[in-house]
Design a protein around this nucleic acid. Structure first.
Length: 877
RNA sequence: GCGGACGUGGCGAAAAGGUAGACGCAGCAGACUUAAAAUCUGCUCCGGGAUACCGGGUGCGGGUUCGAGUCCCGCCGUCCGCACCA
């Protein structure tokens, strides 16, 4: 209980202009406190660590940010979770590596260069400066001595060496791949720059173009990457599933169709060789070699292919586009029946990158084929009979039948199940020499060339005499030129007057540098290794990596579930093959946090408004600052375009870092999306002050630090002490399982309990001290500044950050009395207080004696009684 | 289109197959105050009832079970990824 005496006579500390209204109630001065503790942590180099062989380590890493400008509150959820884990493991005695860096190359810097006429390097460095200051203000315990930026030559010189080693090992190679081409800007567009088939700036219809590019042979590790997913025990199941599906192992068969009247053969890949007798057409990818040859003679085919090439390169676009085909006039001969011919189409939905770039269509048993067949009036022959259907009457309507059944209309396959028919058809194909059973994967090699300036230069030189020549190691790094112009569309490196012209390292003749740069996923595939020895003259020191790797806890957004995480897994293996390290999996534990949402606001004329431009007017209606009406819209992921962002600085100015941190941890489970609300953050701010007052103005004089707690306590005081120890156990368990919102709820429960402690009872002073010290330690990883302040006020020694994590006394976490539920026919009819582990018969007797139970039994003996020890009794009447 | 997830009060949520709604936000009533803010106390899933209590209730429809928010089958809705955004 708070007493008026405790509130009186304390001067109001100025805690933020909007908050410091009270002359009576004291407020926590977070500004002074947060700056002070941040200074002390920095001065003591608290979070700078070195490898200590023999001491257990813990590597915590949050996915490093792209320096896009200023942070909003949505950005820091990730880092708040990471800092909690880092400080928690530190308190548990681990040598914790918790570094931070910048994913500093990328497209937005070039967009800014064009839009605002600012150099990408300057834009990036200014953003880094701003964001670093913002992270420091949040009190995150990073080892800043290991800070890296991928755009720094000290980082990318090593990356260029890695590229050359990959090249030497055959893991990097030249290939051709398709890109989105903007014919007006003369530029390659990223998928996100293609909107409804048009360039986002020019509005021109985007074309597909084939370009010679560098790629990495991730497919050399396909099976390994797939098989090892099973060992990633501390990864979310959904991420493992997504990676499995991405790699996409399919067992099936290659089947050769001869083209009637020619020597031409078309090889298709199928997983449904059992349905070959239901084939009614063949479809070729528009990029299939045969399609291209046909196009040379047939203007219709040529026009159709050109039309397909006007579609973007992204799979989502291709798969959602209307399925269309163009008849080539060719007929293919059925491999099992020479008398049967099927039409050959070129079709826009067949991908050259997958299988053989050609398919056979069996409309009866594949939905997409069925729609195609209906559209072009092709036969639909059912060959798999669903159980219980009559073969004489079974027909296919609008829905293809894709499940198991018995083969019909299929000659030697008739009567078999789908699995048996797959085997039999495969064997027959092999015997006829017309095909073979095979396994294909969806995973493609990774194209790493980007026709852009702001990326790591690819260290190769093209010589007309010597061909592709790697830049000699002594000439690394190949440095990006600073004097570039974005006035001309296209790649500034290519336009640069001198940069690309160099003598050939082999023959000394005139040669040209590669002007493509590396995909930024290349940077992020090894940055976590660089952190282990961030200033090393090599990419990373072997001993440092041996000590610190793998990352024990990696934390980031679910949007990286496949690409970044799969590329990093591949990279680690590729580096192992090149002798860099001895490790397969870079991330032992992975956690993917949800996004942060906020309500959107629109003015009368449909313009988006920032939350701070909206106030509640008369009658609770929303208005803008000029009093004009505002419509509140959907709650969406915070984004600049919809303006539904809450700036981090605004929140930290108004409430402090700790309040923001606790809100981000407490409101929703971390894996789920979180709704940012102004009232929610105010609630946390009130709680922060409550905690501060509990320690600065305790209701009873606390016992001196270290005073032993009396063995015998009055029941109410004993109950509080038990609550303290139960909270330690529960919070520890919750933190281990990433249930931060629950942990916060437990801590708040303990706060409530401590406030209700009867202060006049014997032992209260000692139990309250234990409770408050515990509370402080448990809060440490969440609200580190406030916790230090509380620790100091409690007279604790040294820094709270150096204190060990509390341990619960098992004697005090077990209750001797339990409350169990009494049900009749599964419905709750009462509860019963019984001693723990009372034997079932006694429990049953007590339950049956309850007046309520007797009423519901109406004098009849129960038919059955189920007793679940210490939980429930269910009486079946 | 393919792949993945999610759905519980006015809101964020909690519940090893065992008392649905802990903890918090918002709201209502009260205390303190000239007043407000801050703080404190109480109430708050829906319907009936003065209370006791009774009935209903976890997106929708089925099923398994002594017992289902939780497990199974089928729908509906929302969100995320799809290889050049990071």
């Amino acid at each position: 209980m708070r007493t008026p005496a405790a509130q009186a006579g304390v001067t109001g500390l100025q805690a933020g202009s909007s908050m410091a209204r009270s002359p009576i109630m004291s407020r926590y001065n977070f500004r002074e406190s947060e700056a002070k503790w941040q200074r002390i942590w920095r001065e003591q180099r608290l979070f700078e660590v070195a490898a200590e062989p023999g001491r257990p380590k813990y590597y915590v890493l949050e996915m490093y940010p792209y320096p896009s400008g200023k942070l909003h509150v949505g950005h820091v959820r990730n880092y708040t979770i990471g800092d909690l884990v880092a400080r928690y493991r530190r308190a548990q005695g681990f040598n914790v590596l918790h570094p931070m860096g910048w994913d500093a190359f990328g497209l937005p810097a070039e967009n800014a260069a064009m839009a605002e006429n600012i150099h990408p390097a300057i834009w990036t460095h200014e953003n880094i400066k701003t964001m670093r200051a913002q992270l420091e203000r949040m009190g995150f315990g990073y080892d800043w001595s290991r800070e890296i930026a991928t755009c720094h030559p000290d980082f990318y010189r090593h990356q260029q060496k890695i590229f050359l080693d990959f090249l030497a090992a055959g893991l990097a190679f030249r290939t051709e791949s398709w890109v989105n081409w903007d014919p007006v800007e003369n530029t390659v567009l990223a998928n996100e720059q293609v909107i409804d088939g048009r360039g986002w700036r020019s509005g021109a219809t985007v074309e597909k173009r084939l370009l010679a590019q560098w790629a990495l042979r991730i497919t050399a590790f396909t099976e390994e990457l797939l098989d090892a997913i099973g060992q990633l025990e501390r990864w979310p199941e959904r991420v493992r599933l997504m990676q499995e599906n991405w790699i996409g192992r399919s067992e099936g068969a290659r089947v050769c169709f001869a083209v009637a009247g020619t020597d031409e053969r078309i090889e298709v890949f199928t997983t449904r060789q059992d349905t070959l007798f239901g084939a009614s057409f063949l479809a070729l990818s528009p990029n299939h070699p045969l399609s291209l040859r046909l196009a040379e003679k047939d203007p219709g085919v040529s026009a159709f292919i050109a039309e397909c090439n006007r579609m973007g390169t992204s799979e989502a676009v291709i798969e959602t586009a209307e399925k269309r085909g163009y008849p080539t006039g060719l007929e293919a001969v059925h491999p099992f029946d020479e008398s049967r011919h099927v039409l050959v189409y070129v079709a826009n939905f067949v991908l050259m990158e997958y299988g053989t770039g050609a398919i056979f269509g069996c409309p009866a048993h594949d939905q997409r084929d069925l729609e195609f067949a209906r559209k072009y009036r092709l036969p639909v022959i059912p060959v798999v009979l669903p159980p219980g259907e009559d073969p004489a009457t079974f027909t296919i309507g609008d829905i293809a039948y894709v499940d198991d059944g018995m083969l019909i209309n299929s000659a030697f396959l008739d009567g078999l199940s789908v699995a048996e028919a797959k085997r039999a058809a495969g064997e027959r194909l092999e015997k006829l020499g017309l095909g073979e059973r095979t396994t294909v994967y969806r995973l493609r090699d990774w194209g790493v060339s980007r026709q852009r300036y702001w990326g790591c230069p690819i260290p190769v030189i093209y010589c007309s005499a010597c061909g592709i020549v790697p830049v000699p190691e002594k000439d690394l790094p190949v440095i990006l030129p600073a004097d570039v112009s974005f006035d001309v569309p296209g790649n500034p490196l290519d336009h640069h007057p001198t940069w690309k012209h160099v003598p050939c390292p082999v023959c000394g003749g005139p040669a040209q540098r590669e002007t493509d740069t590396l995909d930024t996923f290349f940077d992020s595939s090894w940055y976590f290794l660089r952190f282990c020895s961030a200033r090393a003259p090599v990419a990373f020191e072997r001993e440092a990596v041996d000590y610190w790797m793998p990352v024990d806890q990696y934390i980031g957004g679910i949007e990286h579930a496949v690409l970044h995480l799969l590329y990093s897994r591949f990279f680690t293996r590729a580096l192992k093959q090149c002798g860099y390290l001895n490790l397969d999996e870079p991330f032992a534990g992975l956690f993917t946090q949800g996004m942060v949402y906020h309500e959107t606001y629109q003015s009368e004329n449909g313009e988006w408004l920032f939350p701070e431009e909206v106030v509640t007017g008369e009658g609770g209606r929303l208005v803008d600052l000029a009093g004009r009406p505002v419509t509140a819209g959907r709650h969406e992921k915070m984004s600049k375009s919809k303006k539904n962002v809450v700036g981090l600085d605004v929140i930290v100015d108004m409430y402090g870092a700790d309040t923001a941190r606790l809100y981000l941890l407490s409101d929703s489970p971390p894996e789920r999306d979180l709704e940012w609300t102004e009232t929610g953050i105010e609630g946390i701010w009130r709680y922060v002050n409550r905690l501060w007052r509990m320690v600065s103005e305790p209701p009873v004089a606390l016992a001196a630090p270290g005073t032993p707690i009396p063995a015998a306590l009055p029941p109410a005081v004993e109950g509080t002490r038990r609550a303290t120890h139960k909270t330690i156990a529960a919070v520890t368990d919750d933190l281990d399982k990433f249930r931060f919102n629950r942990a916060v709820a437990r801590i708040r429960e303990l706060t409530n309990t401590l406030e209700e402690l009867p202060s006049s009872e014997p032992g209260a002073a000692e139990v309250l001290r234990e409770g408050l010290e515990t509370l402080t330690r448990l809060l440490g990883p969440m609200m580190p500044h406030l916790a230090e302040e509380m620790w100091q006020m409690l007279g604790g020694e040294g820094l709270l950050a150096d204190q060990p994590w509390p341990v619960a006394d098992p004697q005090l976490t077990r209750d001797e009395q339990v409350t169990i539920a009494i049900q009749v026919n599964g419905k709750l009819r009462g509860t019963l207080e019984i001693p723990r582990d009372l034997d079932n018969l006694a429990v049953e007797e007590a339950a049956l004696a309850l007046p309520h139970v007797l009423r519901w039994l109406e004098g009849q003996p129960p038919r059955k009684v189920i007793v679940v020890p210490n939980r429930v009794v269910n009486i079946v009447a």
